[in-house]
Amino acid sequence: MKFIEDPRVKASRRLWAISWIFYSVFIAFLMGLSYTMGTEPYIWGLPRWVAIGNIVVPIVFVIALIFVAEKLIPDLPLTDDKEGTEGGKE
């Protein structure tokens, strides 16, 4: 019998890719800005790299995560008997 893959597996693989891409962009910003912004001039009394790279950047990415999670993760049923009917409302 021909093997038919559960379509939810594809969604799972896509989520893995999204999460790693999201984190890679975050790390690029975090490291890039932290290493290049320098310790002066101070912002809010903090070294520039701390204020921008380590306060602003994480906050922006956490806000972005809300949209990424809510918009890009599909409502999928987790049990086979409800598959294709209730979209996550188990």
């Binding site: 989520l15 893995w16 790693w20 975050f26 994480p58 990415f61 995560l65 999670a69």
Partner: peptide, 23 residues
């Protein structure tokens, strides 16, 4: 700076394997 790298632990756990483990 180093500790900030842990911010997205939940994403990096639940997104890659959460759906598969759930099913």
């Amino acid at each position: 700076f180093i500790n900030n790298m842990q911010t997205f632990m939940n994403l990096l756990l639940l997104a890659p394997i959460g759906i598969m483990v759930g099913i």
